[in-house]
């Protein structure tokens, strides 16, 4: 879950110059390729699809290949579905810490970094940004590096066990079009 938060934060991070800052009402769309390098697997588990970030509303992460997996993160929680059928649901009511994570994310989206100052250390070298939680006592805490231009272009998450996730973002556009009815329904 921490990885999820970091990823969300990276997606919307305005911590560096010339980086886009999202505000309420904005909609960021783009494409992603996710490669999951897992020990014991000869090749990475690769998925590809599109994503959408709407500050105040949430995030839609839609893998198209190899499976149609849709993940929606909203203030109410996280819902995952495959081929339109819901497979898992983490509601804020059941996991209250999700609300705290979402609040942090929402605040960050609106440019309010106070919530993050106490929780994360951000450092930058060139166009590579490292984001790491200040609580280093968790043995499961991954190391994260991101390449950032106007938007986040690439993220690499290395887990202590040796697994590694690589995310490549492309075709990112801000406010190309408003949320359509289906997207608005997902984020409701």
């Amino acid at each position: 879950m921490i990885r999820l938060t970091l990823l969300l934060l990276l997606l919307v991070s305005p911590a560096w110059a010339e980086t886009a800052v999202l505000k309420d009402g904005d909609v960021l769309r783009g494409r992603f390729v996710q490669e999951r390098y897992m020990q014991g697997f000869a090749a990475p588990l690769r998925s590809e699809g599109g994503f959408l970030v709407a500050p105040g509303r949430g995030l839609i992460w839609r893998a198209e290949t190899p499976f149609a997996i849709t993940t929606v993160v909203t203030p109410g929680g996280l819902v995952q579905s495959v081929d339109g059928a819901e497979t898992s649901r983490l509601s804020v009511a059941r996991l209250p810490f999700l609300a705290r994570l979402y609040d942090m994310l929402a605040a960050a989206l609106a440019g309010d970094w106070r919530g993050l100052d106490g929780a994360f250390a951000v450092s930058r070298r060139g166009d590579v940004v490292s984001l790491r939680p200040l609580r280093a006592d968790d043995p499961n805490m991954p190391a994260i590096a991101a390449r950032v231009g106007r938007f986040v272009e690439e993220v690499e998450i290395t887990k202590p066990g040796g697994d590694r996730d690589r995310l490549l973002f492309s075709d990112q556009v801000l406010n190309a079009r408003p949320l359509d009815a289906a997207e608005a329904a997902l984020l409701r």
Partner: peptide
């Protein structure tokens, strides 16, 4: 599969 391939998966090897 959705957890393995999906977003922000908590699954590791």
């Amino acid at each position: 599969l959705s957890q393995i391939y999906g977003f922000g998966g908590a699954v590791d090897s």
